[in-house]
Amino acid sequence: MTITLNNRTETFKFDKLTIEELIKLKNFTFKALVVKINGKLIKKNEYTSAFFVSGDKVDVIHLISGG
């Protein structure tokens, strides 16, 4: 499938992935993340159930300290 991940086109050899699987595949190691699929916020307890398919828009924002 091909999705838009953080405004870039990204292709995976799977037809469907959960957020937890995406985090593993991409080695996203940050502890604080904001995840959206097609604009809908995905909370931490939904990472194992929320999934995306080809054509979806996925945003993963890594939150870092400083303010």
């Binding site: 940050f30 502890k31 604080a32 993340l33 904001v34 916020l41 909370k43 939150l63 870092i64 300290s65 400083g66 303010g67």
Partner: peptide, 19 residues
């Protein structure tokens, strides 16, 4: 406007505001 210090606080605020 989010102007918090810690990453976890930012995450919490974003989740709450979006909800």
């Amino acid at each position: 406007v989010e102007a918090l210090d810690k990453a976890e606080e930012k995450e919490m605020l974003i989740e709450c505001v979006t909800d």
